[in-house]
Design a protein around this nucleic acid. Structure first.
Lengths: 271, 271
DNA sequence: TGGAAAAATAGAACAGATTCTATTATCTGC
DNA sequence: GCAGATAATAGAATCTGTTCTATTTTTCCA
């Protein structure tokens, strides 16, 4: 059995071959035969199609990410190739996770696929978890983009929230293995999970209507946060094969209607 | 850094030395110098005081727990010593986790402490996760016992639910390391998490007032389940040091009031 | 342009979970 | 009381995350 270690994973239902992105992003060519070292040069091209090729929030500027003491040398030099390297790493990681889940996303393998040394990979991402977080970050970026392009239109806050959550759910479920890996890993992470929080902000935006912070009462924030945690839980349940989309949607609706009851009804009848 | 591996853990606030149990159970003598093989015979006595010495739901009857094919030999023989062995294992695991968290709960160490061979440990618990699940099971047993002895008295369903959840929270927080280890592990487990589900049932009981199943509408079950998932999430947040008891209580109250709004108000003015 | 600093690299090394093997102990049915 | 089965044991071995070292590249500045 090639499935040891703590974070055992994936027991999801089906697992479609390609297509990735929490918001229905591009597809994953995914086929490049595994064992394929790619030593020093010749970095593998587009393991994951494109997946919003933005330069995520990098860490490695020059001063060193881990616990380096050397002067932070403000010169954000070498940034170009570093960004590319970072991208290649994240893409390789995502591609690997899309298939075998976290288990397949082994550090050594990611390094190989990305064409970097193991040590380099660790310089960019101090731990596997950090890598996972990075991958998730990209996924969420995709979702936010999707929401912006096609904002939820329901007339009630609950309706809009459910819309967003179900959209996110379907997006994630396109790659059950990846979703499983990411979600579980994030829950464990001690790092500020960009998942729950970003999701909460996103929900607050669509539910409250106003993106401003003043609209967000402490209480509203708590309520939306609760809804987000319920969603995460349901996501885990569907991954465990204990829920269907309908059940999830139903449950989230039930909870959303009560939790977001007194949020300003429709964003406005005009818009 | 002695903190490698995926499931990095514990970043909790304080960590009192002894006392264990989600419901404020007995204390943990915990001190028996670690390295102490205890080869074949002489099993170590009471690593963890007593911790509800019930014979949990064992698995190893004789037919083998894993994926054995041999006839299930109904003869539940050797069960006596096996139960004891199982108990010693779980106790050793709990004791170790009470201190260093999951990290300290190393399979080799647990085996040593329990006085069994590594292979035997794996025969009883196919993976570390299974062991964690077993430990959690005992913790929940303690909570249920506590609830039975001193049932929540609030007049509203929400009030009673909050009472139970906060009691559970405080109980778990007595051993942040253990709590952290257990909760995180469970969330990951593919096995039917005895955590969320058992907690949900417990909540449904105190909230709905009636333990019968007919009272539990599909919807009520969903609502209580949602509350449970919110609680788990808050638990993780407090473990991450991002919440105080007050905040958790406040958030849970906010959610409970709305989610359990139309549950039968007081269980009865009499009682 | 020369060289020091920062990055990368290859690859060994280490740690802990899980597996496997050979051997011994304990039962169970007869 | 014995033979075959099942459990348990000791300990080596495997696997993967993480760390460490020596060396080479790359980048940048005086």
């Amino acid at each position: 059995m090639p499935t040891p270690h703590a974070t055992t994973g994936a027991s999801a239902a089906s697992h479609l071959p390609s297509a990735s992105g929490i918001a229905g992003g591009p597809a994953v060519p995914g086929d490049a035969t595994p064992g394929d070292p790619v030593p020093g040069g010749t970095p593998p091209d587009g393991v994951v199609e494109d997946r919003v090729a933005q330069d995520g929030a990098g860490e490695i500027t020059t001063g060193g990410a881990p616990g380096a003491q050397s002067e932070p040398a403000s010169t954000g030099v070498r940034t170009r190739s570093q960004h590319q390297r970072r991208r290649r790493i994240v893409q390789a990681a995502a591609a690997l996770a899309s298939r075998g889940g976290v288990e397949a996303m082994q550090m050594r393998t990611v390094a190989e696929r990305a064409g970097v040394a193991l040590g380099t990979l660790y310089r960019y991402f101090p731990s596997k978890m950090d890598l996972v977080v990075a991958v998730v970050g990209e996924e969420i970026d995709l979702l936010e983009g999707s929401i912006e392009r096609r904002p939820p239109s329901a007339t009630t806050a609950a309706g809009r929230a459910v819309d967003v959550l179900m959209r996110a759910t379907r997006g994630l479920m396109r790659e059950p293995e990846l979703a499983d890996a990411l979600i579980r890993s994030l829950i464990l992470a001690e790092v500020d999970t960009p998942f729950g929080d970003r999701m909460t902000d996103l929900l607050l935006r669509v539910a409250g209507g106003k993106p401003s912070a003043e609209t967000a009462t402490e209480e509203q924030y708590a309520l939306v946060g609760s809804l987000a945690s319920i969603w995460v839980h349901e996501l885990l349940e569907i991954l465990r094969g204990r829920r269907t989309y309908e059940q999830i949607q139903h449950r989230i609706e039930i909870a959303a209607v009560r939790l977001l009851a007194d949020f300003q009804p429709p964003p406005s009848t005009s818009n």
